[in-house]
Amino acid sequence: MSDSNAQFTIHFWGVRGSIPCPGAETVRYGGNTSCIEMRVNGERLIFDGGTGLRELGQCLLDEGQPIQASMFFTHSHWDHIQGFPFFVPAFLPSNQFEVYGVISPNGATIEQRLNDQMLHPNFPVPLQIMQAQLKFCDISVGETVAIGDINIINALLNHPGEAVGYRVEWNGIAAAYITDTEHFPDRLDENVLYLAQNADVMIYDCTYTDAEYHSESSSKVGWGHSTWQEAVKLAKAANVKKLVVFHHDPLHDDDFMDDIGRKTAAEFPNSIVAREGMVLDLAEFKALELASR
């Protein structure tokens, strides 16, 4: 973990939705499912535990022990938790993790949901074999979690079975992580606007294109995901400084993602398509912004 007192970086470890899709046609953008890491003022925040979490775990092991981090889950669909059983740092007793999640509509806690996916016959060993110090923390929708002088805010998203998005604030910098949400046909989502308002970066669920979403033969309406066109509308309305296209459909190969990147940038110039391994330095962005005033 960095000792920098002015650090706010976002590291992308998994950028896909639904299911991992490794292969020659996805090598440039990556095939792992959702997992991002924020390093903020010496703290490590991990959002979602898709298969990208395994990659993050290997990187953490290379940095040495002990490891301390806070993990925040948006919800517990497979593509957001399936990397957790393969997160090697959680098996080592020298490490500490605080794990946050909103209680699901059926009353299940994040601990119960992570435990259930590791029960026989789904997995060979139970969650209890993990030897790290795991502290599970249930949070309410709308609750703010304070870690030092960092505030992590959540709001409910429009997704089957419910999900939450997060906003991380520190030292005048804000990043919004808004994935697994479906836009409304007649209005912009107030919760999304709340999380994204004046954010330095908005990471947004752009699983589909408008054409795919409204397809007469295979409509995606009601599936719980949004489009890059809706992301542009939200970014403009919320005065977002940088838009990150995220949660790529597994059927979208590298060339398809290149095309989405070009079209998104034409509508919102300060935008980028998330790639595995990509790092954004928000503290640097903020310093450049202040210097240009």
Score class of each variant (00 low, 15 high):
F47K: 11
A237E: 07
A146I: 14
G107K: 09
L61D: 02
Y204A: 12
P22G: 03
P66E: 01
A235Y: 03
Y177R: 06
E111L: 09
L61P: 01
F184L: 14
T9A: 09
E212N: 01
I67R: 04
T51A: 08
S215D: 07
D205L: 00
F246N: 13
K233M: 05
R293H: 15
H183M: 04
G172T: 09
E230V: 02
P126Q: 01
F12C: 06
D3T: 12
C21W: 02
D149V: 08
N5G: 14
E276K: 04
L134K: 07
S104A: 13
N191W: 03
E162R: 14
A174G: 11
A69L: 12
H214S: 09
N32E: 15
S215T: 02
V240H: 06
S226H: 02
V279M: 06
V168Q: 07
H248L: 01
V232C: 07
G17Q: 00
G161F: 10
V125H: 07
N198R: 13
I153L: 14
G107H: 10
L53H: 00
T74M: 14
T179P: 04
C21M: 10
N239A: 11
C35N: 15
I153S: 04
E25W: 13
E143C: 04
S217L: 13
L53N: 01
I129M: 07
L134H: 05
W78K: 09
H11V: 00
W223D: 00
G277L: 03
F91T: 09
R187E: 12
P89I: 04
W13Y: 15
D79Y: 05
N95E: 05
T74D: 11
C59W: 11
Q58L: 14
R28Y: 15
W228H: 12
R39V: 15
R187N: 10
C137W: 03
G64K: 10
P85E: 07
P269A: 13
S271N: 13
Q82S: 06
G57F: 12
P126G: 05
W223V: 00
F87E: 03
D258K: 12
L114Q: 05
E182S: 03
G224C: 08
H11N: 10
H225P: 07
A24W: 13
F8T: 09
H77T: 06
S18R: 07
V15C: 07
D3K: 14
Y194C: 09
S4V: 00
E284R: 05
G50T: 05
D189S: 11
T144E: 14
D180S: 13
G161S: 15
I178S: 07
E212W: 01
K220Q: 04
S215P: 02
T264C: 15
N154A: 14
Q68C: 10
S70C: 12
E111F: 11
G14I: 05
V221P: 00
L288I: 03
I46R: 12
G222N: 08
I36T: 14
A235I: 02
E43S: 06
L290S: 05
K220E: 00
I129F: 05
G64C: 06
G14S: 11
D281W: 03
G224D: 02
A211E: 15
R275M: 07
L134P: 02
V244R: 08
K233Q: 05
F123M: 05
D186F: 10
D258S: 11
Q229N: 10
W13S: 07
H225G: 08
N171K: 12
V40D: 06
